[in-house]
Design a protein around this nucleic acid. Structure first.
Lengths: 229, 229
DNA sequence: CGGGCCCTTGACAAGCGTCAAATTCGGTGG
DNA sequence: CCACCGAATTTGACGCTTGTCAAGGGCCCG
């Protein structure tokens, strides 16, 4: 009975994209220290003391943890506009490893300093807003993990297309790692990919280059565990 | 190759429990406005303007959204010490419905006011810390959804026991709703429950009353999709 | 006593993981 | 430039896990 309360609300886009860069730009990025990092470098590692929370300005960063069996799990994929590292703000220690996938520029925010700055500059986005942005992403990943394999992949690709602002995208990681992120086996990933290709949701134009059809992808995403004709 | 970097780290507890009440208490709860709410009442509803972020001081609250097909999905289960509603802080509108399951006392935090207070009282937990706490919970649910049904349930029950401070727990919601939260069908939930009972991970002592054996539950949780003998 | 809802159970099918092996791709050394 | 190696990806076969459907039992509340 509890679960049926929200049923009659209209269906609207579930989560809006939120690009933290925009608010930083609006604030004139006062006092934002940026850092350029080459692909393959490390943004932070597990166990280090947390000094900064990061905003990805460009490029791509993956965040991974070891699960209880010691297996590495990719738990986050941050592109331009995304916030990384906020989850460890309270504990003071990074609990995950952040790896730069594509040459990136990140804004490094030192909480204390940022807080002082924002006392004087009310236009500066509050730390808390950055946190809210990361919660949003975590919740979207949450909902994604509730879908079947093809829908899961479709949702992920749609988000990538949205972020990158193009239907013609270059994946920042291997299919293997993408499978890890989506909690699928590489074999299943391969099959889901072919499934999407078969239903004209996308066309493969190179190893990790895809041309997407957002309309059809949305259709597939909405299809609960059943193939389209 | 990317995914194998963190492998040799020691296996330690994955996420620590974080009880925001503790830090509020440490700060003397200066200026925290509390509200008592009866079971069945609504904390906030989708579409409303966000005025407050909540900290559950006692009782239980569930948060639900409609998925893309319009089905209600329970996305969060907040007990004493948990933060609710922070995800909508940036957008300014609640995107979900929060329903009180068990008579609850919640601390209502108005961001602007809290911010002003914390400028003067450095001991007050920052809004950002509250946000970090909610990210933590979202990430844990994330990892949970990657597990098989029995492990998923085991992890959830372990968290409940930890939160409630007892191995003898009363579920704040029906099995049906718990299944929804864990993204399982009621039938699967029933089977997982019997599975745990069969392997002495728990004993059922009433409709929604359970006596847990944390040690065995941890064992089951660590077992990847395979029955124990 | 009669519904209605929640929880169970059984039978069955679909989805996804697992295993093994083939194939392709990228990069390296000759 | 070409052969070769190792990693990534693909394919097929097969089985376990979970979803689905249908039906039954138990409990609470009129």
């Amino acid at each position: 009975m509890n679960a049926s309360v929200a049923l009659r609300l209209p269906v609207v886009p579930f989560w809006s994209a939120d690009d933290v860069r925009a608010s930083l730009r609006a604030a004139g990025s006062i006092g934002l220290r940026t850092r350029a990092l080459p692909a393959g470098s490390t943004l932070f590692s597990r166990g280090e003391a947390l000094r900064q929370v990061f905003v990805v300005m460009s490029g791509a960063v993956q965040v991974q943890r070891a699960d209880r069996a010691g297996q590495a799990r990719i738990v986050d994929l941050a592109l331009a506009g995304d916030v990384v590292g906020f989850d460890d703000f309270a504990s003071g220690l990074y609990a995950a490893d952040a790896l730069v996938l594509r040459d990136a520029v990140v804004g490094a925010i030192e909480p204390k300093r940022w807080w002082r700055l924002s006392v004087r500059n009310p236009r500066l986005p509050a730390l808390a807003s950055l946190g809210a942005a990361q919660v949003h992403r975590a919740l979207r990943q949450n909902m994604r993990l509730r879908l079947g394999a093809p829908s899961r992949l479709a949702d992920c690709l749609l988000q990538l297309a949205e972020k990158l602002g193009s239907v013609d995208i270059e994946l920042p990681l291997s299919y293997q790692d993408l499978a890890n992120y989506l909690n699928l086996r590489p074999e299943t990933m391969s099959r889901a990919l072919h499934e999407l290709e078969r239903s004209s949701c996308l066309r493969r134009a190179g190893r990790t280059r895809l041309e997407l059809d957002p309309e059809r992808l949305r259709l597939t995403r909405a299809t609960p565990r059943r193939r389209q004709v």
